[in-house]
Design a protein around this nucleic acid. Sequence first.
DNA 1: CTCCTTTAGTTGACACAACAACTATAGCGC
DNA 2: GCGCTATAGTTGTTGTGTCAACTAAAGGAG
Lengths: 194, 194
Amino acid sequence: MTDLADAVVAPPAADPSAVAAPAGTAAPAGPARRDEEPRWLSPVERAAWLRLLAVVELLPGVLDTQLRKDSGFSHFEYQTLAMLSEAPERTLRMTALAERTNATLPRLSHVVTRLAERGLVERAACPTDGRATNVILTDDGWAAVVGAAPGHVRTAREAVLDALSPAQVAALGEIAAQILTRLDPEGRMTDPGA
Amino acid sequence: MTDLADAVVAPPAADPSAVAAPAGTAAPAGPARRDEEPRWLSPVERAAWLRLLAVVELLPGVLDTQLRKDSGFSHFEYQTLAMLSEAPERTLRMTALAERTNATLPRLSHVVTRLAERGLVERAACPTDGRATNVILTDDGWAAVVGAAPGHVRTAREAVLDALSPAQVAALGEIAAQILTRLDPEGRMTDPGA
DNA sequence: CTCCTTTAGTTGACACAACAACTATAGCGC
DNA sequence: GCGCTATAGTTGTTGTGTCAACTAAAGGAG
């Protein structure tokens, strides 16, 4: 994994003569401008980072492929339907749904249009706010989620959970929670109600 | 995080009357067809899975945004250039580069075309195999990677590493390695040489 | 040497996501 | 109640990614 490691995270050093200054882990001899001198990664940090990057790169494809094949949904479509299936009345406002799925409003609007064409969701004007649109999961949509869920869970096991010891699963939960304090400080994806 | 949790991973149970069979964690009363009865996730598993999913969803956007803003690259373009910067002669075959970046050959071909238009890489016929194409990082491309690396490392710290204790970083490395045995059994992304 | 299969890569058509521009309603100040 | 600004969504355009078809060279069987 040396190539990937160095390439992504350290400045390129394959040709050391060409890049003296930014290559090293240590600061240059002279007084460094602090803002521009990054703290390079330690070997342990580098390994963790690169592997996380690989997971982040590969996992979406695995999920997408399984869902597409077994149920005809993209992962994003599945998440959209799943969020609705959990909501009271199986209904959510566009904005609320976009937050929970980490989608922009335009993206969600397009996806909802396509799902509506397939009869899985419906749009309805919000009675209390003329600007808002409610999205409602239809019975067909409900059935589709229920049908797709088992395969999705199986994939989660095969691709991730079953590769880990129980202690590692717990640790992963902790670690991911820590990371999310940076990536999602408001907890929009993890804590919809708040 | 209850909504997200249940929605993605458990079958929808907001309206219990509507979905008796597939909702529960326990097997139905009758003799279950083993292939179709998934093992639902325990609370700990579910929490870990959903948070991992959120990280996987959010991290690419963060990386992309920072690189795009500070250096004008997508994360994939950066990875492509970085791989080349590490390679002997700053040169790689299309196929080798595609493996290291987890790209399909068509995708890489398009990206290389665009990078070549910007003068960052060059195509060259492989002298030993008439079918192959070598991609070479130009001096401009080299300079671009060197310029982009510090910001990328800083983002890696801010978004992930600095949120974790040293022990957690080490644990993350272990866990991600375990997951990659499932996602990437051949180690193509993590072990280019082999 | 010739045919056939496999490998390497490019190209073009289509699908989807990001961004920007636009419409329409709500809510507020006066 | 008039006008302003902010909010909620939709629509169109543009850039990437995926898939399928295609070209071309390498390697093997006869």
